[in-house]
Design a protein around this nucleic acid. Sequence first.
DNA 1: CATTAATCGGACAAAAATGTCCTTTATTTG
DNA 2: CAAATAAAGGACATTTTTGTCCGATTAATG
Lengths: 144, 144
Amino acid sequence: MFSKACEYGIRAAVYIALQSLDGRRVSVNEIAEEIDSPIAFTAKILQQLSRNNIIHSVKGPTGGFQIAREDMDAVKLNMIVKAIDGDKIYVGCGLGLKECNAQKPCPLHDKFVDIRTDLSKMLKSTSLFELATGLEVGLTYLKR
Amino acid sequence: MFSKACEYGIRAAVYIALQSLDGRRVSVNEIAEEIDSPIAFTAKILQQLSRNNIIHSVKGPTGGFQIAREDMDAVKLNMIVKAIDGDKIYVGCGLGLKECNAQKPCPLHDKFVDIRTDLSKMLKSTSLFELATGLEVGLTYLKR
DNA sequence: CATTAATCGGACAAAAATGTCCTTTATTTG
DNA sequence: CAAATAAAGGACATTTTTGTCCGATTAATG
């Protein structure tokens, strides 16, 4: 469904949000440790998220990554997915046809559109804050 | 969503079914031409489908691939997906966690399960025959 | 102002997915 | 039985994704 990069990206963003709720800024090393991901690869992904203004980065000692409380509400999952995987999840034919649309649909078109609409709605309506608070109260987990 | 191999596999299977409805047995070359896919790669995928008894192959002159009318009803999309991509679409965490389940869910678990259940239902309930007949009456397309 | 701690960014490496080529095997047909 | 045809299968090539390494840049702190 999502690429590895995107999986790490979402997990990292949720972890950063969780720590930001406590006013903590976190380093790549800590993030990779806590979400169980490869450090250098995670760093690349965080750069992407930072360039897309999804998370905020600070260089130098005491630096790291953080997310402002308001941004946790504004940032929805679809923004993270788009920043990392592009829009291939939302666009394009389920069977790989170049020109597949309502006028000239592939055999799976309608059924596929239904599924993808649901997925799209879910990603557009799920905020980082929502995911971070689930973690905070111990309902969900990020590791293993 | 699906791998390229799986996309080609589904398209090929639907095309074989369509031709089998007319009693025609088709070669890899014709299939690849008609579904616009790389020939040799398509041949590999057809081998997989054949080994999994999803399509029937016949060697030698006048040989090729075909699907019996009864099998078009019996073969559902999920069988093709499973034969080619395995069960990674059905199993495993949306965020890539190794142990993610109702007891120890990732932050996206519930929402992800919903989407995947829908996808799974769709694949399990869609037969090759259904897709082939849509093609036959000119409602859908397999190329471009 | 030197040291240190952190991200940034580019080059490289490894693994997986996609795709090609060529030989072997089975089968039909003249 | 020989020739031709088509799938089967193995080895190899290319591309994409995943992952690593290291020097450059930025900023805090003694």
